[in-house]
Amino acid sequence: MRASLKRTSLAAVALLLALPACEALQPDYKKASATHLKGNEISSLLTGKSISLSNPRGRSYTNSFGRDGRVMISGGKGNLYGDWKVAGDRYCLTLDEDKREQCMDIYSVGDGTYQMVNSDGTLRNTFKVQ
């Protein structure tokens, strides 16, 4: 019985020691230190600014957000254009070539870095304001 109690105690200690490692394996936007931006914060962050972003596949882009609601995405195979807006607490994008509206949450993850997260909870990109 004592050996069983000792093994259980060791397992509990190992689990407690592993919890910080689990936190480190999570995407930045899921960490307790991340902050989900509100609509007015998203507007202030993006309006009239450009961001440098990279997607999970390592591709880099620059998005420029006009005060008129237009966006230009540079990189890859040339420029893409579309409209952007803030709806509730989400950033929404509609490209001229693809009229499906795509809305994302934005999280501040520290050090001036932000992450956009798709509606299904997957990471879309990581960016900094230029």
Score class of each variant (00 low, 15 high):
Asp89Ile: 05
Asn40Phe: 09
Leu17Ser: 08
Glu41Tyr: 03
Ser74Asp: 06
Leu17Arg: 06
Leu17Gly: 14
Gly48Glu: 05
Ser64Glu: 05
Ala11Asn: 11
Leu5Gly: 12
Asn79Cys: 05
Trp84Val: 00
Leu46Val: 14
Leu5Ala: 12
Gly66Trp: 03
Asn63Tyr: 12
Asp96Glu: 12
Asp105Lys: 15
Thr126Tyr: 01
Leu45Ile: 06
Lys6Met: 10
Met104Tyr: 14
Arg7Pro: 00
Glu23Val: 15
Ile51Thr: 15
Ile51Arg: 07
Leu80Gln: 14
Tyr61His: 08
Phe127Glu: 00
Arg100Pro: 01
Gln115Glu: 15
Leu46Met: 15
Ser108Lys: 15
Asp120Gln: 03
Ser54Phe: 02
Ser50Ala: 13
Asp98Tyr: 08
Leu93Tyr: 12
Tyr107Pro: 02
Leu46Thr: 01
Gly88His: 04
Ala11Lys: 11
Gly82Arg: 09
Asp89Arg: 04
Ala34Trp: 03
Cys92Ile: 09
Phe127Ala: 00
Pro56Tyr: 09
Ala14Ser: 13
Asp111Trp: 05
Ser64Tyr: 04
Lys49Gly: 01
Gly66Pro: 02
Val109Asn: 06
Lys99Ile: 08
Tyr91Leu: 11
Ser9Glu: 10
Asp28Lys: 14
Cys22Asn: 04
Leu16Asn: 10
Ser33Pro: 02
Leu53Phe: 09
Ser52Gln: 12
Ile51Gly: 10
Ala24Arg: 07
Tyr61Arg: 12
Lys31Met: 03
Leu123Ile: 01
Arg57His: 12
Tyr114Ala: 04
Gly82Asn: 09
Lys85Gln: 13
Asn79Gln: 13
Asn125Ile: 00
Gly112Cys: 06
Ser52Pro: 00
Asn125Phe: 01
Arg124Ala: 14
Ser9Asp: 12
Leu25Met: 08
Glu41Cys: 00
Gln115Thr: 01
Asp105Thr: 03
Leu46Tyr: 12
Ala24Trp: 07
